[in-house]
Every structure is written in C-alpha cells, then in structure tokens.
Nucleic acid binder design. Structure first.
Lengths: 218, 218
DNA sequence: CCAAAAATTTAACACCGTTCACTTTTCAAA
DNA sequence: TTTGAAAAGTGAACGGTGTTAAATTTTTGG
C-alpha cells in the first residue's frame, strides 16, 4: 500500500516537514528584516542548528528557497486583492480598493515584494513554442487577469471609456501600482513621505489609486 | 604655483584619468549586459590588465564604482527629460512626452535604471537635522522637481484640476512611470509585451503616459 | 539484530570584496 | 644625473559566499 497520501504522514515525513518548515521560517524572519543581502545559507544553518550542507537536502539552491518566500508572499497579495475584488463595495470605489490593497500589502514586506520583481527575465531567443502562454497559471499572470477583469467590469458598467482595451489598461494599472509600491518602500526620501504617520501613507496610496482610476473614466 | 586647475593636466594626471576611465568603461560594458551580478572587481581587473587591488586606488569600493555608473545614467535620463520639458510642443502633449521620455530612456539600460532604485534606504531613526532637505541637489530630487513644475504648469494653464497638489501629483506620476519602466524591462512576460516590435513598446508607453495625464485633467 | 536507506556533517572548491605589506615606477629637486 | 620621496601597482592573505562529494551518523524495516 502507498501510504504517502494518508492524512497522517509517517513520523519520518513529519520530521522532514518540520525541518523544512524551520528552514523556511528562519529564512522568512531574516529576509523580512534584512532582505536577500542578509540571508546566507550558513547563517540559516546556524539559526536552525544544522550544517550548511543539510539545507541542500531540502532545497536545491538558495534561489529555490528564496523563490518559495517570494511566491508565498505574492500569493498573499493576490489573496487580499481577490477579497477586495469580490467585496460588496460599489464599483468605482471597489476598483480603487483593489489597487490600494495591492500597494498596501506590498508595503507589508518590502523585501519580499521587491525581490519578486528583481530578476531581469532573459529573452530566451526563440519563443518557447512548447508552452504557449501559461500566463493564467503563474501568480503574475493571475494578478494581470484580476486587473483585466476589473477593467472590463468598469467598462461594462459604463464607468470607463468604452474604447479602452482592458488588457492594455490592466498592464498600465499594474505597472503604476508596482511603481508606487517600489517607490514608497525603497526611496526613503520619496519626497516628504519617508516614514510619516501611517495615515499619510494610506492617504497617498488612495490618492494614487484615484488618479489612476480617473484616467480610465469616461 | 598650483597647476591643478590648468586645462592641460599633468601627464601623471592624464594617465590616472585614462586608467580611471578604462575601469569605468569596462564596468559600464559589463554592467550594461550582465548587471551587478556579472560585475566583479576581479573580472574588471582582468579586463583592463590590472590587479584587483589596483582598482581600489581609484575607487573606494565596488559600490562607489557602481554608484558612479548609476548616477551617470540617471543624469542622462534627467537631461533627456529636460529637453522635452523645454520643447516647443503644446502643453498637454509636452507633459506626455516628458513621462514617455523618462520611461524610454530608462529602458535603454535596464540594469542601470533598476540598480539606481534597488537599495532600500534605511530609516536612520532620527531625522538628520544637520542637512535639512537637500532634495534639490540630488538627482532624484531634481527628477521630482521637474515633474512638480510640469504639473504646476498644467494647473496654471487650466489643463489640470485646480485643486491638485503639484507635489503629490508629481510623486504619483513619477511612481507610475517608474513602475512601467521596471515592468517593461524586468518582466519579459509582462503579458503580451515581451520583445515585440519596438513600435508596440513605444505605443504602450504613450498609452500609459496618456492615461496618467488624463487622471490629472479637469 | 542487522543491513539498507535516509539524514547529516566535514572538508573542500571556486568564487567574492577588501586590505596590507611589499615592490616598482614616476618625478622633481639637489 | 643622481637621489629620495611620493605615487602606482602587485601578491598574498582574511573572512565571507554558494555549492558539492565523500564520509559518517541516524533511522528504519525485515
């Protein structure tokens, strides 16, 4: 019998999961505060009282480990957006809330958020024909899809200009929110907005979201 | 006599400048293609046929060297914006051109641009009272100032809503353009926009700029 | 209890930025 | 032209990094 699918895993599996979790949570702790710079395999090994090489039995590389942190956080962002998306708020405000929520959640863990966008993705020369558009599967694809549907909704409801192409608009919105998140978390002298009272930050995020939505309006 | 200010520098000075320039241009070459990851002091030393330690006679650290690349590129961006700013184009179009130019220039050297915004600036606890707002001196301060004045102009000309606060609007614009530049250069699957014909990229940048300006309009 | 398998460690490799003591080169004054 | 100091450049090392292979310990099932 194959017991690998039972709810109660074997003790060996449980132990393995515990160690894996310990690695991830140590990594999470360090990464949240010091980012990729402060996170070294050796330091991680120290914190969980294992040897550095042990970590490689749980993760293929440091990048794989960090990727898991990034993906987890990005999924959290998506979740929060999805909540707003299906909230009962009236439309134009709901759209603004989605944008603002994206930025606010990104600001919760600046290092995570920035790292998720830090790699310059290679051009891979010839189009990979074998996997045509798995955009819908990836987290980033989902983010784009959410926004695209949000725009469509606004068009159908008559709030946005009818000639808008939802996909283009979604890209523009996403990029703009991404920029705001990066600026607010990375540029401490983003003029007159360093670590002022949180309500000011919130107000500015709302302001930015409003400006973007206005740009789509009829 | 102090000869250090004569136009013709001493031979020693000229040699020193040549070597310094060689280091910088090798660094520029590598950095443009491979970014900070591919740039090591040892590799630089190899390329210019010096020993690694020699480089430290010209730059205090690798960071100082890279900073010089980043600053130089950011100044190029500012220059291009300034050109647009003082062009003869009619107003709302001129504003769009400024935004689009910022993004287009950033895309010329993605690694440079990204690196210029890559550091999370520390909170430094207590405000540094000794240097109250040197925003106007720094390159980023200048970028902000340009945009702020651009918005003011739009308000006075009656194109933008009168109640807009120029500084807030400028921050929003800047952040949005920053986001677009980062997205377009870093996310190769920024959906349906990887390395399509350049005219498509240009068109999208214009689209984005237009959307932002619309958000400010009365 | 014992052998096979899994988990873990030790030690090394090849890098990295940086520093320091040392040698070589340059250059102006005697 | 010789000399001596300053400048330029080097070699070797230090402590750090990610990663891997072999050896070792621990766990597990028959």
């Amino acid at each position: 019998m194959d017991t690998s699918h039972t709810l109660e895993a074997s003790p060996a599996e449980r132990r393995r999961r515990r160690v894996r979790e310990a690695i991830l949570s140590a990594a999470e702790r360090v990464f949240a505060v010091e980012g990729e710079a402060g996170l070294s395999i050796r330091r991680l090994a120290d914190e969980i009282d294992y040897s550095p090489a042990a970590i490689y039995k749980y993760f293929g590389s440091k990048n794989e480990l960090v990727d898991e942190l990034k993906e987890a956080f990005f999924e959290r962002i998506l979740g929060k957006i999805d909540d707003q998306r299906s909230s009962t708020e009236a439309y134009p405000a709901r759209a603004r809330s989605c944008l603002a929520t994206y930025v606010r959640t990104a600001l919760e863990k600046p290092h995570h958020y920035a790292a998720a966008f830090s790699s310059i993705e290679a051009d891979t020369e010839e189009h990979n024909e074998t996997e045509p558009a798995d955009h819908h599967a990836s987290n980033k694809g989902r983010a784009f899809q959410y926004l695209s549907e949000l725009v469509k909704e606004g068009i159908y409801a008559g709030h946005f200009r009818a000639e808008l192409k939802p996909d283009e608009a979604a890209k523009a919105l996403w990029a703009s929110c991404h920029g705001l998140a990066m600026m607010m978390s990375h540029i401490s002298d983003f003029p007159a907005m360093p670590h002022e009272p949180p309500q000011d930050r919130d107000a500015f995020i709302d302001y930015h979201s409003d400006l973007l939505i206005r740009g789509l309006e009829a």
